[in-house]
Simulated assay, not measured.
Amino acid sequence: MGEQMIDFGKYKQSLTLLESQFGHWRTLDTALPIWIQEAVSESVIQRYETCYDCLWKVLKRYLKEGLGLPDVPNSPKPLFRIANENNLLTSDIARWLIYADTRIGTSHDYDGEKAKAALNIMDAFIKDAVNLYQTMSGETWP
């Protein structure tokens, strides 16, 4: 039993794609038509949703199989609290709960304010997701 048996591939791929698309969004030419700007923003948010979902599912498996914890819950917020209690998170638990609320917001209501909120946390989320990846996988981020 251990983290060697846990497949981090989908998490790593989704985080790589998010990081790349967020980089494109940050350097996007504001002279481009608004529909292109919106499409790139929406793509970043969709990649965030995918990465977030991969992250918490791998975290759940890591807590069960990597750390051997019994009775691991099946939802992100309690998992983040347990991860925090086990010193897996490099940032404050409050920030992880914001990521969870942001993910809920993007899936239930895609208004402009929630999209802006998601884009505003993206830099911090990517850094935290990279740190968690490194902690769980034992690998250095590319």
Rank of each mutant, 00 (worst) to 15 (best):
Y110G: 03
V44Q: 03
E19H: 03
N84P: 01
L28N: 01
L15D: 05
L67Q: 04
G9F: 12
K77G: 03
A117K: 11
P33Y: 06
L63N: 05
M122C: 11
Q4S: 07
W25M: 02
T50E: 06
K127V: 10
F8G: 05
E42S: 05
T27E: 02
I6G: 08
D109G: 08
L79P: 06
Y48D: 01
S137H: 14
V58L: 13
K64L: 09
C54L: 07
S91A: 06
S14G: 00
M122H: 07
L32D: 06
V72Q: 12
R61K: 13
L119I: 14
V44G: 06
I98E: 12
Y133V: 07
T140V: 15
L55D: 12
W56G: 03
L79H: 13
V130H: 08
D109R: 14
A94L: 14
L132W: 12
S20Y: 11
Y133A: 09
Q46S: 07
Q4F: 10
S75T: 13
E19M: 12
I82C: 06
F80M: 14
L69V: 07
Y133K: 07
K127C: 07
W35Y: 12
I34V: 03
R47S: 01
F22G: 03
R103Q: 01
G23H: 09
L69Y: 15
A129Y: 08
F22K: 00
T90I: 02
D128I: 09
G66Y: 01
T50G: 02
Y48R: 04
L15A: 14
C54I: 15
T30P: 00
C51F: 08
E113C: 02
L67C: 09
Q46A: 13
N131A: 11
R81L: 10
Y133T: 04
L17R: 11
N74L: 12
A31K: 09
M122V: 03
P76A: 15
S75W: 12
A124P: 03
D29E: 04
E42P: 08
E38A: 02
D7G: 00
M5P: 00
G9A: 15
Y110W: 12
R26V: 07
L88D: 01
F22Y: 15
D111N: 15
C54R: 12
S91T: 14
G2V: 04
L18A: 07
I36K: 13
W25T: 00
E85W: 00
W35K: 03
L89C: 07
R61F: 07
Q46N: 11
N74H: 13
T140L: 14
S137W: 11
R61M: 15
A31E: 10
A115P: 03
L97Y: 10
L18T: 05
T30M: 04
G105Y: 05
I121T: 06
G112N: 09
S107I: 14
L79C: 00
D71F: 10
P33H: 12
K57M: 08
L15C: 13
L28R: 00
L79Q: 09
D128T: 09
N86P: 04
D29I: 03
T106K: 01
I36E: 02
P33W: 14
A124T: 15
K116W: 00
